[in-house]
């Protein structure tokens, strides 16, 4: 087993302890307390952070040195047998999302769009935006990043290489492309950030959905009818693993005439949608997060609430719609601008 890529010396010399000082869910009296807790984690000692963590992934982004604080935290949780969620909840989901071995070779040609384990989303891949695309989907290619929320690095280590192997041998190996468009932000995070930190080899080139849309919009620029609408954006946990793509999203919005109205809980201050805390049996906190997010969205006045992650949309979509905002995925919004 390869250890998580992380250098304790970098933390020892760190002036800011941003990973913990910026955490929106755990408070520290001062930087020295945060430092003390971080060093405990690094050394494998007990730390209250290990039990209080919401698993929001944000510290991955906060660390200015890319020292993988969140992946290490999950590693320590698992080593110590700390369960963020009750065992049966984790075990049942582990089975639900297990590879079924029902995958069969399929002729694909670019662009190949990875829909992760969610067949209900394949309907999103349509029209000019995805012209000529092939979709691949199923639990045999599930990115498995969700186990970061459940202290299960071991499952990531076990299943991700298998998924990568499936993607290559059943789809990409005999195709005309080596690129995989990740419709799901989490897949991109897995095949870039996680793979790098966990020492997992990725033989294909993952393309983030935003990079793909951005490029397509260049090609389709004559078809764009700017939507001229204000939008609020719900940034998901997984986007902390590829923060550079947030700027690409700005370019997309600019191209389609969508104004991303600044709100308190966007960008680096994005708040969890409330989905994962429910699995952790912290429903009252989840309610609070839902309220904070929605009140924040409503306070700035927008027409659309744009989601990157389908799970965030499932968690918040209904409530958002009841409050008068239209919930859409980024791909939906782009398609609206393309007149589809």
């Amino acid at each position: 087993m390869k250890p998580i890529k992380f250098d304790p010396a970098v933390c020892v010399n760190c002036d800011t302890i941003d990973c913990l000082m910026k955490c929106q869910y755990i408070s520290f009296t001062d930087i020295s307390e945060a430092r003390e807790e971080k060093l405990k984690i690094n050394d494998g000692r007990d730390s209250r952070v290990l039990t209080q963590c919401l698993t929001c992934y944000a510290c991955q982004e906060y660390c200015p040195f890319e020292n993988n604080p969140f992946y290490l935290l999950v590693e320590r949780q698992e080593e110590k047998g700390i369960l963020p969620a009750p065992k049966p909840i984790v075990e049942e989901q582990l089975r639900m999302m297990a590879p079924r071995g029902r995958i069969a070779p399929q002729a694909v040609s670019g662009p190949v769009v990875d829909m992760c384990a969610f067949p209900m989303l394949t309907g999103c891949v349509r029209g000019k935006l995805f012209e000529g695309a092939t979709t691949i989907v199923g639990t045999d290619i599930f990115c498995n990043i969700m186990w970061l929320h459940f202290a299960k690095n071991s499952i990531i280590r076990e299943r991700v290489p298998l998924m990568i192997d499936n993607i290559m041998s059943f789809y990409l190996k005999n195709s005309d492309t080596n690129e995989l468009v990740c419709f799901h932000d989490e897949c991109y995070g897995t095949y870039t950030s996680v793979a790098d930190a966990y020492g997992i080899e990725v033989p294909f080139k993952p393309i983030h959905q935003f990079d793909y849309y951005n490029q397509r919009l260049n090609v389709l620029k004559d078809s764009i009818k700017p939507i001229n609408a204000k939008i609020v954006y719900q940034r998901p946990c997984s986007n902390r693993l590829s923060p550079q793509t947030d700027k690409v999203l700005d370019e997309i919005f600019a191209k389609i005439g969508a104004e991303r109205v600044p709100r308190k809980h966007d960008r680096e201050n994005a708040l969890c949608c409330g989905g994962v805390p429910r699995a952790h049996q912290r429903d009252e906190l989840a309610d609070e997060l839902v309220d904070k997010n929605i009140n924040d969205m409503l306070s700035v006045g927008a027409t659309y609430c744009v989601f990157n992650c389908p799970f965030c949309m499932a968690t918040l979509g209904q409530e958002v719609a009841e409050k008068g905002l239209m919930p859409v995925l980024v791909s939906d919004l782009v398609q609206i601008a393309l007149g589809e």
């Binding site: 369960l83 969620a85 009750p86 065992k87 049966p88 909840i89 049942e92 989905g275 994962v276 429910r278 699995a279 049996q281 429903d283 799970f311 499932a314 968690t315 979509g317 209904q318 409530e319």
Partner: peptide, 11 residues
């Protein structure tokens, strides 16, 4: 941690 409520999104 021996029992819990399944997280079910509204849909």
């Amino acid at each position: 941690k021996i029992a819990g409520f399944l997280p079910l999104p509204p849909p």
